[in-house]
Amino acid sequence: MNPYLSIVAASRNDNHGGDLTSRMEVFLRGLYHQLNQYDLPTEIIIVEWNPPADRPRLSAILPKPPANGLVTLRIITVPNEVHTQYKTATHLPLFQMIAKNVGIRRASAPFVLCTNIDLLFSNKLIEFLATKKLQKGAYYRCNRCDIPKEIDYSADVPFLLKFARKNILQRLGKNRFYPNFNGQSKWWYHNLVTLGIVWGIALIKRLAESRMTTTIESADTWACGDFTLMHRDDWEKINGYFELDAYSIHIDSLALFAALGQGIRQKILAPELCTFHISHQSGWELQDPMQKIKFDIQMPMLDWNTAKAACEHMLREQVVLPINRLDWGLKNRELEDTIITT
């Protein structure tokens, strides 16, 4: 069965953030359950980057898909010999965005979703994807809801989703009705009075500011590495994620502005069409200020002011910065590509 959707994520068996194996298992069990429930032909691609030599490979530890053929699991391996060619290889064991490019370039479905391996997807989100109404020329964003790490990993998927809905710690992402206004209070999503007030403020801002300013303010860059979905041709149009020899933060935002600059419009999904992110000790959003300072000092990464200037440049000039080579995503490199079956 030809897949309608390719879901791409990157990982390695290094226990990143603690309980990584459990989070990956929940991620896959959730998708297997929901994709079959809503009858959505999908391939899940996990790019195993620089697998540790002293640990089992992902193919040995991850749950296998159901035998009905509706969902397939592919593991594409980027070996250590490739990883060590990057200057910051000793600081970073995994180049997340380059790994996702590997998956994008090898995806077989028309639509490609780049995401992460510590998420659950709301039923309404999968139900929407299963309608097969995605459009070429648009990129899709959804809210990310952080939930506690103290979940029962052994529980069945319906229980986990119920727990997630009732234990949201914070919501990251913009509201589709007023994306140029950074409002995150839950009351602004569910209370009609405050929704009207905020919508009015956002309208006044749009009328008072230039179209360019409104577009910049409306770009939903919050946690965009967790859910960015577009047609495979549109990923090709922006040359995927920028392949920077650095930590992944802000690189996902650059991709959104590259898309906007190429006329690929933004579609923010309704709040209930969201992802649930299982918190972990290395998650940047939930770190306290001291942890963030230490993290920023240690990691080779892109400064936000630099990233913001690059984003605005690509939007105004309608260009994609010439960072990636023609063979981005290691296109010309033969890599181990394993289909995991039951």
Rank of each mutant, 00 (worst) to 15 (best):
Q135T: 03
I46K: 05
D234Y: 12
L70V: 11
Q34F: 02
P158S: 11
P56V: 00
G173E: 07
P300E: 11
G283K: 09
F177A: 09
G263V: 10
V8L: 07
V47Q: 05
L229K: 06
F128K: 12
N239Q: 15
R106W: 10
N182E: 12
S11A: 15
P322Q: 12
A246N: 09
M97I: 01
D296H: 14
L192F: 10
D288H: 14
S22R: 12
Y86G: 00
T214I: 11
I44P: 07
L229R: 05
I75W: 06
V26C: 07
C224G: 05
L203T: 14
V47P: 03
K237P: 01
Q135R: 13
P56T: 01
N13H: 13
A67F: 02
L129I: 04
H91L: 11
P51Q: 02
L269C: 08
I46M: 11
N101T: 08
N50R: 07
L244H: 07
F27S: 07
D226Q: 13
D14P: 00
L40C: 09
H277E: 15
E317C: 04
I238Y: 08
R55G: 00
D118N: 13
I339S: 06
K174S: 12
V71A: 08
Y247D: 15
P322N: 12
E127A: 14
F295K: 15
I75G: 10
K186M: 13
E81A: 06
P52Y: 04
N101C: 10
F27W: 13
G263Q: 08
L195V: 01
V8G: 07
A89Y: 10
K124T: 14
G103W: 04
A259R: 11
L160K: 12
Y4W: 07
Y189C: 00
G69K: 08
G240Y: 12
R23K: 14
T342F: 01
E127L: 06
L207N: 04
D296N: 15
M299I: 05
R211G: 04
C114G: 04
Q135W: 00
Q262G: 01
N143E: 06
A246R: 14
T228A: 06
T214M: 03
F111C: 03
T77P: 03
N305Y: 08
K136F: 00
I249T: 10
P322T: 13
N13F: 04
I147S: 08
Y153V: 08
R23T: 05
N167V: 08
D156E: 15
R265I: 11
K166E: 15
G329Y: 11
K267Q: 14
N15A: 05
I104D: 04
I264K: 06
V78D: 01
L335F: 09
L286M: 15
R265G: 06
L73A: 11
F276C: 04
A109V: 06
I76H: 06
F128I: 01
G240S: 05
L73D: 10
I238D: 06
A164N: 10
L256H: 12
